[in-house]
Structure formats: C-alpha cells, structure tokens
Design a binder for these strands. Structure first.
Length: 254
DNA sequence: ATGGCTTAAAAATTAAGA
C-alpha cells in the first residue's frame, strides 16, 4: 500500500500535475495541504475520473486539506475534535484497515509572533488528541506538512536556521512529543541521501542550489512502522514548470 | 535589501507562505 502527502499550494493551479502524478504512481491514499478552495469548488469530478474518492475540508484562499483514496474511506472526522479552530487543517478517515490523519500544521511566521504561539498551542492539542487516537486506532498514519524540520540533518544550514521558525527548539520538542506518543518518522526508517528536503523557497534559486528543509512527513504508529518497506521524496515534482514549493513524500507499506 | 517568488484576493497592491 502506497501512502503519500503533498502540499500542493493551490489545488486549482496544481491539478494537472497532480493528475499526471496520480496516473504514474497510483498511490492508494494521498493527503493534500494548502488546497486553498472552499468545498464547493473542490475538483471532485476530475479526481473521480482519475479513480480516486476525494474527501476535502477547505476554505477560500488559505489552508485546506484533502484525502484522496482508491478504496472507500469511512468514519470521516474534520478538524481536531474538541479544539475550536477556524482554520481547516485536519481531516481523518479509515481506509484499508488503517486510520489516516491528514494535517497542515500552522506555519508560525516568526518565533515572536501570535501565529507562532498559535502553532505551539495547536501542536499541543494535536498531540494530546493523537495520543488518544493511537489507543483506539493502533494502525495509525499521520501525513502532512508539519512545518517543522526535526533534526539538523533536515536543514540545509542548521546554524542559519537555529532558533528560527520551522527549526526552533519548542517546535522540535513538539515534534518529538508526537513521536514519543508512539509513532515513527517513516522517512528515517530507511537509509536516505544526505541533504534530503521536501521544501525549497521559490526565491534565490533555492531548489537548484538544494537550499531546503525537510518539513513534510509521514508518521506511522509503532504497530504500523514494521510494515513499511520504503520511503522517498518525489523531488522531481519540484523541478517542473510552475511547481509547488513542496515536493511529495511517499511511504510504501507491505 | 527581513529582500529575493508564488498564490489568492481583486483590479494595484496586500497578505501569507516558510
């Protein structure tokens, strides 16, 4: 079973690339972030024609998540239950015996901003909810744009980024708390090339120079981690005409 | 020169991303 996540930075702009990629890779479940459309404008028909059943939880202009599955998904939950949030960032469902959580973690803007405080409070609520979910759904996968580079090797220049948003100590501690709740970073279950990243700034030829961060992740519950057979970053999608600034991440289960 | 692109809003700029 192939699981994938991709921050598309507007599903409207990226739909042709998404459809081509789905046809090539045929993932069984795909989590999308920053769809940037309300639910009335989600491209349902195009994705159905491609063989996928779309679930979506969006808003105009900002945020928005979606889950595309080839098999039927059930028990759909939107948002973090019990956590009031105007922003559409979490979508969960069961498919093929797995519980899948799609997430778009707040960016945080800068460490001295209200958005950063919102990010940390949001992550605390997310972790506490996932800890409970893991008890009822031992086979759990959490996929998405976490907006956190967990370790120094996930940052092109750790000295430059130390203490900045996406790589500050409180954010890395919050990411560690997610793993400590009973999950593994599937990308790190396997040998990987050095300087592997999932996001590159649009400016400064950052992709060509590989000045990136690894901030998009596929976490697998401890019960599921043993079933993983590979994990990789589809960086070729960052090299196309008019790319998203994020590349997809793929993890395959036996 | 906290810039450099890209997107969505709206009709020129602004906000936001990371």
């Amino acid at each position: 079973m192939k699981l994938a996540t991709w921050n598309v930075n507007s599903i409207k702009i990226r739909l042709p690339q998404l459809l081509e990629w789905l046809a090539q890779k045929r993932p069984d479940a795909v989590c999308l972030q920053e769809t940037k459309v309300d639910d009335d404008n989600f491209p349902v028909l195009e994705l159905q024609a491609a063989g996928y059943r779309p679930l979506y939880f969006g808003q105009r202009t900002y945020n928005g998540v979606a889950l595309l599955t080839r098999a039927e998904a059930t028990d759909v939950i939107r948002g973090i239950p019990g956590y009031e949030d105007e922003q559409k960032r979490v979508l969960s469902a069961s498919v093929d015996g797995l519980r899948i959580v799609c997430t778009y973690v707040p960016n945080g803007q800068s460490v001295d901003s209200d958005k950063y405080r919102y990010k940390l409070a949001w992550l605390d609520a997310f972790q506490r909810w996932l800890s409970r979910e893991l008890k009822t759904h031992p086979k759990l996968a959490v996929l998405g744009d976490f907006n956190i580079a967990p370790e120094e090797r996930d940052v092109h220049d750790p000295r430059l980024w130390e203490g900045r948003v996406l790589f500050s100590k409180p954010e890395r501690t919050a990411f560690r708390a997610l793993l400590d709740a009973g999950m593994k970073d599937s990308f790190r279950l396997f040998d990987q090339p050095e300087r592997s990243f999932t996001w590159w700034d649009y400016r400064m030829n950052a992709f060509k120079r590989n000045l990136g961060l690894r901030i998009d992740h596929i976490l697998l519950s401890d019960a599921l981690a043993g079933e993983a057979t590979s994990s990789s970053i589809a960086s070729e999608l960052r090299a196309v005409e008019r790319p998203s600034d994020h590349a997809p991440v793929l993890t395959e289960l036996q």
